[in-house]
C-alpha cells in the first residue's frame, strides 16, 4: 500500500446551498468532462443512471406556499470513507491529497463500496457504455472510458489536478489558488461550488469552509469526515429539506 506522505495539497470543495439555483449546469459539465455514459430513457427506467454530481430537489411547505430546495451531492471525498476498507482489491483508496480515488483497472465489481457509501454517489457500469457516432469525438482524451462491470464516481477532476500539479512542479512552485477548477465549479453560474486546496489557509475554499454556516453531510452521525463542506441557506435555519439530508 502507498504510505501516507505529507502533501501540500488537500483538495476540497465548498458547496454554498444558498447560491444553488438547481440549474443542473454542473451535472451537464461533469457528464461531458468525465466521459460519463449517456443517461438514456432505459437507464432511468432501470434506476441505473450515472450522475457523478446530482442536484437533489426537495419540496418544502404545502401548496400554494411551496418552495423548492436544492442540494448538489457529489462524492464527499471522505477522510474516513466507508467505501474504502470494504473493497477487497484496493480498487478504491485514499491518496495523500485528501481524495478518495477509484482505480478502474483494479475493480472487480463487487459493488460493496457502493453499499458502504451513505451518499449514493458511486455508480456501477451495468452495461458496456456506448456513445452514438456523433458523440464519439466529444469524449475527453484525458479521462478513461470505463468498461462494464466496474464502479465509477466523482474524481474531483483528477486529470485537471494532475495537469496543474505537473505544470507547477516544472516551475518549482505549488499550485496556486484558483489555478484549478473542477468541471462542475467551472460551470456553476452562481459560483455555488468552489474548489481548492484546504491545506492552503489563504485559499478561497479554506476561508469559506470556516464560515458560520458550514456543515458536513452525515458527518456527526457516521464520522465520515468529508472534504466537501456545505454552507447552509441564509434566510432561515436549516430545517426540512436540507436538514433531511443533513441528518
Amino acid at each position: 500500500m502507498v504510505t501516507q506522505q505529507d502533501s501540500p495539497y488537500n483538495w476540497g470543495m465548498v458547496v454554498d446551498i444558498d447560491r444553488c439555483t438547481g440549474c443542473q449546469a454542473c451535472v451537464l459539465a461533469c457528464q461531458v468532462e468525465n466521459n460519463v455514459p449517456l443517461n438514456t430513457e432505459n437507464l432511468y427506467k432501470q434506476q441505473r443512471i450515472y450522475s457523478w454530481i446530482r442536484i437533489e430537489r426537495y419540496w418544502e411547505g404545502d401548496f400554494p406556499d411551496v418552495k423548492a430546495r436544492f442540494i448538489p451531492i457529489l462524492c464527499q471525498q471522505c477522510g474516513n470513507a466507508p467505501c474504502e476498507p470494504v473493497c477487497p482489491v484496493y480498487a478504491t483508496y485514499h491518496n495523500n491529497e485528501g481524495m478518495n480515488v477509484q482505480i478502474y483497472n483494479r475493480c472487480v465489481g463487487t459493488r460493496y463500496c457502493a453499499n458502504g457509501c451513505p451518499y449514493h454517489v458511486r455508480f456501477f457500469n451495468y452495461w458496456e457504455p456506448v456513445w452514438p457516432e456523433s458523440l464519439r469525438n466529444q469524449l475527453n482524451p484525458d479521462v478513461t472510458v470505463r468498461s462494464r462491470g466496474v464502479m465509477e464516481k466523482c474524481s474531483f477532476c483528477v486529470h485537471r489536478i494532475r495537469r496543474a500539479e505537473r505544470k507547477a512542479r516544472g516551475e518549482d512552485r505549488l499550485v496556486m489558488d484558483g489555478e484549478i477548477q473542477s468541471a462542475c465549479s467551472q460551470a456553476c453560474p452562481t459560483d455555488a461550488l468552489v474548489f481548492g486546496n484546504l491545506n492552503d489557509l489563504t485559499s478561497r475554499v479554506s476561508k469559506m469552509s470556516k464560515d458560520d454556516r458550514h456543515y458536513k453531510l452525515l458527518d456527526d452521525k457516521l464520522g465520515t469526515d468529508p472534504n466537501v463542506v456545505y454552507l447552509a441557506r441564509v434566510e432561515e435555519k436549516v430545517e426540512e429539506g436540507a436538514a433531511a439530508a443533513h441528518g
Binding site: 434506476q47 441505473r48 465489481g109 451495468y126
Partner: peptide, 15 residues
C-alpha cells in the same frame, strides 16, 4: 457477455 444489466439490480440496490 452482456454485463450485469441483465439482472434486476440497480442503484442503490447493488446487491
Amino acid at each position: 457477455n452482456k454485463g450485469l444489466g441483465v439482472t434486476g439490480l440497480s442503484r442503490p440496490v447493488f446487491w
